[in-house]
């Protein structure tokens, strides 16, 4: 009998290990690598003329009516003066001198009292009114203050928004201006052969290096129907290097892919 090392296949733990290796590798691939999600983000340029915008911007919003001061309070109607109590007539008719004297004295006294009371009342009313007036004044002042404050805030916000928009617009116009300059330069360098019909237009996408050089396979987005014109324009682009670019690096970045439309006009 000869004993030989048995020739088994892979054991179960080897399979498990192999699985583990694959799972690990898959995890590394899926989680560890940043797979691109956004492939293309076309450049967006918002173009608007500054003139229109200034017109819209300078239109000041209608002044918001500040809380109107409360309507002046109606002056309290003067209270009717109490009618002096009528003396009983019966007492007056059959009058002795004494009685009349007493009567007169009494009357006088009554009148005096009445007068004093009236004066006091008058005084009190005046004081009250004054206090009311002062209170109303204070309230009105405060309201006016608040209104002014809110108006000032609004103005400041407005100003900031206007500045931001202006900057944006300025950038947009700058980009536009440089694009015009680029087109002008290309046009100057383009020798259009005879026989190209008037009005054909060519749309290209240029990849522009920060130095103003153009990466050469120029991407034709929309060909003019005339191959001769396409060729001539691409020659012109080649000859126009370096393209005029802004100095500001932020602005220059906007030109990395530049979309141009070139139209043939005589």
């Amino acid at each position: 009998m000869v004993t030989v090392t048995s020739d088994k296949g892979a054991q179960w733990w080897a399979w498990l290990l192999a699985m583990a290796v694959h799972v690990m590798f898959a995890l590394v691939l899926i989680l560890g690598v940043a797979w691109p999600r956004h492939v293309t983000t076309p450049m967006e340029a918002e173009l608007w003329s500054t003139k229109d915008m200034d017109a819209t911007m300078t239109r000041v919003p209608p002044p918001q009516p500040a809380n109107p001061p409360p309507p002046p309070k109606a002056e309290p109607a003067p209270r009717p003066t109490p009618v002096p109590p009528l003396l009983p007539k019966s007492e007056l008719t059959p009058k002795s001198e004494d009685a009349r004297d007493v009567d007169i004295a009494l009357k006088k006294k009554q009148e005096k009292e009445e007068k004093a009371r009236k004066q006091a009342e008058q005084h009190k009313r005046e004081m009250e009114q004054e206090a009311r007036q002062m209170k109303a004044d204070a309230l009105r002042e405060q309201l006016a203050d608040e209104a002014a404050q809110s108006a000032r805030d609004e103005a400041r916000r407005d100003q900031a928004a206007r500045l931001a928009l202006k900057a944006h617009a300025a950038q947009a116009t700058l980009i536009d201006r440089y694009k015009q300059a680029i087109i002008r330069k290309i046009r100057n360098n383009t020798q259009v052969p005879d026989g190209v019909p008037d009005g054909v237009s060519l749309e290209v996408d240029l990849t522009v290096l920060p130095t103003g050089e153009v990466l050469m396979p120029v991407k034709i987005i929309k060909s003019s129907a005339s191959p001769a014109y396409d060729r001539a324009v691409i020659q012109g682009i080649m000859r126009s290097q370096p393209l005029p670019l802004p100095d500001d690096p932020d602005l220059r970045r906007e030109f990395r892919t530049t979309h141009l439309q070139l139209k043939h006009e005589k």
Binding site: T5, G9, A10, Q11, W13, A14, W15, L17, A18, M19, V21, H22
Partner: peptide, 22 residues
Amino acid sequence: LLLVSLMSWAYIFSKMVTLQKA
């Protein structure tokens, strides 16, 4: 390819142990 890769890894591991033992 996945199956083949799994098998080859399984053999790699089992062979490794076998040879160490030998």
